[in-house]
């Protein structure tokens, strides 16, 4: 199980992904979206793929990340690095709160609790109109700059510069996550996924580990949400809704559980397909529904592999990056 790929190989791979994506895609915006949703999917995969926890409330972390980062950029103007770090910390905090409640129950109750907390977050965001903009979303978000004192100040106004920023963050998180899943913590998570009772019996505090993985998932997902808000320069209410939760979940399963590479693939396939179909037909989601059923019924497990073939047929020109961990 523990394949010993040196970390710099993952670094090179992440670098290659970030470098090649824009060449294959029509816009930097789409490439940015793929990378940042890739982060959100990694967050979801930590829970589902590595620990076996199906969270239906990832949008809560994603949406909160959008709001926190947006609000900080509007009111505090801290610069990009502190803004994102604080957002991650807050995302982790919210995730810990949800985790503490949700892990009291297993199975279907767990799933429903995560969903209910996300809905709670949605309605709070909806209500807190003076702060979040309510239904209209949080408007006029500016992308904070990166200023290194006495050296330089980088602005991220252009699509390209913002893509570069997202790409750099993506590479860092990607490598860190590769490290995490092979670390002592990662191995305990795998153990919990495979056999919770035994993990407890040999001396692991399973509940505490679950809360810790929630914290990681929350912070990475909040980071993705923050980048999304900066990309749009706006934090829509929909970032925190049920639909976003199920999309992140779908990308995760699409890409393959328990694979950091698969996470990026899932995000890429989903977003490229959405982009492609959305132009053809406003009601394309019906195809998404069919695809979801088809994937779940006929391609359990080897989803990423099967889908490469499937999408290769549909959009051979667009999606040639056959990548499999």
């Amino acid at each position: 199980m523990l394949t010993k790929t040196p970390l710099f190989v993952h670094f090179l791979a992440a670098f290659a992904i970030a470098a090649v994506l824009p060449m294959l895609l029509p816009s930097y915006v789409l490439a940015t979206e793929i990378l940042l949703f890739g982060l959100a999917v990694i967050g979801c995969n930590l829970l589902l793929g590595y620990t076996g926890l199906l969270s239906f409330g990832q949008a809560l972390f994603f949406g909160s990340g959008s709001y926190f980062a947006g609000l900080m950029s509007i009111h505090l103007n801290l610069g990009i690095v502190p803004t994102l770090l604080i957002t991650m910390a807050l995302g982790a905090l919210i995730a810990i709160l949800v985790g503490v409640f949700a892990i009291r129950r297993a199975g279907i109750y767990f799933i429903m609790l995560t969903l209910a907390f996300a809905q709670l977050g949605y309605y709070i965001a909806f209500l807190a109109e003076p702060i979040t903009g309510g239904e209209d979303g949080l408007l006029d978000i500016q992308r904070p700059a990166l200023s290194i004192p006495f050296v330089a100040k980088f602005e991220f106004d252009s699509d390209f510069s913002f893509y570069a920023l997202t790409g750099a963050i993506f590479i860092v998180v990607f490598v860190l996550m590769q490290r995490l899943v092979k670390s002592p913590l990662g191995t305990v998570l795998t153990a919990i996924k495979q056999n919770e009772a035994r993990a407890e019996a040999i001396g692991y505090n399973v509940k505490l580990y679950k809360i810790v993985v929630f914290a990681f998932s929350g912070s990475v997902t909040a980071l993705a949400g923050a980048l999304y808000a900066f990309m749009l320069k706006f934090a829509p209410l929909s970032n925190i809704d049920l639909e976003t939760s199920s999309q992140i979940l779908f990308m995760t399963i699409l890409g393959g559980l328990g694979s950091i590479y698969g996470s990026v693939l899932g995000s890429a396939v989903f977003l490229v397909a959405s982009d492609f179909f959305a132009e053809l037909w406003p009601r394309w989601m019906i195809l998404l529904g069919l695809l979801l059923i088809f994937v779940m019924l006929y391609m359990p497990g080897g989803v990423s592999k099967s889908l490469e073939d499937l999408f290769a047929k549909i959009s051979a020109a667009k999606d040639q990056r056959g990548k499999k961990p």
Partner: peptide
């Protein structure tokens, strides 16, 4: 259950778009 959930979400999308 996870599979049931995702498939019924697919169903939900289809009916809603319908």
């Amino acid at each position: 259950h996870a599979v049931q959930i995702l498939i019924t979400i697919g169903l939900m999308l289809i009916i809603r778009e319908g």
